[in-house]
Write a protein that binds this DNA or RNA. Structure first.
Length: 464
DNA sequence: GCGATCAGAT
DNA sequence: CACATCTGATCGC
């Protein structure tokens, strides 16, 4: 649509259709030139499930065939022609879940806007296997017989619900519990896999490793029968500990599917530990000045529990969370967390609230029912990264927002890798090929990431 | 009328 | 700036 094929890459290209394998050992696209006209049935030819991936080689510009929402109907749709993705010359993706509807006589501009391409992007498919990762929003994916879920965040499990029936779901035991509990997915589809244990699925050796993201989050290591190793990081925060995972030490990773959320040097933030110490320090200071302070920690669904746990431990106070959040937290099987929850707001000065409540007005209202029990609110908003950081790692330069007796701190508690952590991880793994999974919809950003990867993996530069 | 889905906000 | 939703509107049955 917009920009196309403007990007050059060191290895391979899209046109290498005659070869059996590309430079990275991937089977290359079997050339069936003409737009197949036999595109009706699921069965048809044995086009492998990840052909779109092979076809792509290392030309990241192929990502341009996006799953983007179309703002307007294209001409095919407007003229009532079937938009069949398999017959589109450049399509790299599976067919959409539903055939796009031709506009009928009644259709208006608003109808036309609603047309959405729902095909699974290639980087969610694992080539040489019938697997996808975090791909639940595309309905039944042709050729996929096992759906992996890296962790329980909406942008990864989206599409899962009680009506799920497209195939088995593999994930960590904790994630499995949440999928059953919160999404009411039929348990017969859910297959928990113990971490650090090799499981053979469809002939592929699969091992889940701790991802240092939210509870239950896993890196997924695939070892194919031909020896190829793929590592999908899901969302993760790279750590030194990972450099001692035996699987990563002992097997070269051929393809790395990388969480590139903060793959830019402007993203600098402190270690989790430093942020926790800071939060505790601020809290103690505040309570010294005003003992009648309610301490609030903002949270989404799961993740960043350590922020309130650290305060709880340091002050020796319980943690209040509402019933639905408690149910989720209890399911973690994390004793020091479960053991410190309480069911009454009055019983502790430390409360966990939805991130959306961390606003002056909302907090003021929240305080009201407690009467004169509290004279002030100290709130922490643990975001991944705070823009105010020209200062980078300098926690002491953080300036809270303050209005009346309410103070709100944004703290850079990140569950994604910083730029330098990413670099160190990639230089440790030295994969043959890296497929970014975040920030991929923008051509400039894709190109920028690839140039970082090239720099990191060029032998000359190994400085930290 | 209701759940699912979408655009937009936060 | 971007995360991971959340909200309110609209769709489709």
């Amino acid at each position: 649509m917009t920009d196309a094929g403007l990007y050059e890459f060191e290895y391979g290209d899209c046109e290498s259709s005659g070869l059996l394998h590309d430079e990275n050992g991937f089977p290359s696209f079997q050339d069936n030139d003409d737009d197949d006209d036999d595109d009706e049935e699921e069965e048809e030819k044995e086009e492998s499930f990840a052909d779109d991936f092979y076809r792509c080689g290392t030309d990241w510009s192929c990502l341009l065939q996006t799953e983007r929402k179309l703002k307007q109907a294209n001409l095919f749709d407007m003229w009532g022609l079937k938009s069949n993705s398999e017959s589109e010359a450049n399509c790299l993706f599976s067919p959409p879940m539903k055939k796009l509807k031709a506009s009928n006589g009644k259709s208006t501009a608003t109808h036309l806007k609603k047309i959405v391409d729902r095909s699974c992007p290639f980087y969610k498919k694992i080539p040489g296997t019938p697997f996808t990762v975090d791909a639940f929003r595309y309905g039944s994916i042709k050729g996929c017989s096992a759906y992996f879920l890296t962790h329980f965040h909406y942008d990864h499990y989206g599409g899962l619900g009680k009506r799920w029936s497209h195939g088995p779901i593999y994930c960590s035991p904790l994630t499995a519990r949440l999928v059953r509990m919160c999404l009411l997915v039929n348990p017969s589809y859910i297959h928990p896999l113990e971490l650090n244990t090799e499981h053979v699925i469809d002939g592929v050796k699969v091992t889940l490793l701790e991802a240092n993201h939210c509870p239950g989050a896993a890196l997924i290591h695939f070892r194919l029968q031909d020896g190829q190793c793929y590592l999908h990081t899901g969302d993760f925060r790279a750590s030194r500990l990972m450099q001692s995972y035996p699987l990563l030490v002992n097997h070269r990773v051929n393809v790395l599917y990388l969480d590139t959320t903060y793959c830019n040097p402007k993203y600098k933030f402190p270690s989790k530990e430093d942020v926790l110490n800071y939060v505790v320090r601020v809290t103690k200071n505040c309570l010294k000045k005003q003992p009648k302070t309610l301490v609030v920690v903002g949270a989404y669904s799961i993740g960043k529990e350590s922020v309130f746990l650290a305060i709880s431990k340091a002050l020796g106070v319980k943690i209040y969370a509402n019933a639905s959040r408690r149910r989720v937290l209890q399911s973690f099987d994390w004793p020091e967390l479960s053991g410190n929850l309480c069911t009454q707001g009055n019983d502790t000065l430390l409360h966990v609230l939805p991130m959306s409540s961390l606003k002056f007005e909302t907090l003021k209202d929240y305080l009201k029912p407690y009467g004169n029990q509290y004279a002030a609110v100290l709130a922490f908003r643990p975001t991944g990264w705070t823009y105010s950081e020209t200062v980078g790692n300098q926690l002491d330069l953080i300036r809270p927002l303050s209005r009346g007796n309410i103070t709100i701190y944004g703290v850079p508690y990140s569950e994604h890798s910083s730029f330098t952590e990413l670099r160190e991880f990639v230089q440790f793994l030295r994969p043959d090929k890296i497929i970014p999974t975040v920030n991929v919809w923008n051509a400039a950003s894709r190109e920028k990431m690839q140039s970082f990867f090239r720099e990191w993996l060029s032998c000359k530069k190994l400085m930290i």
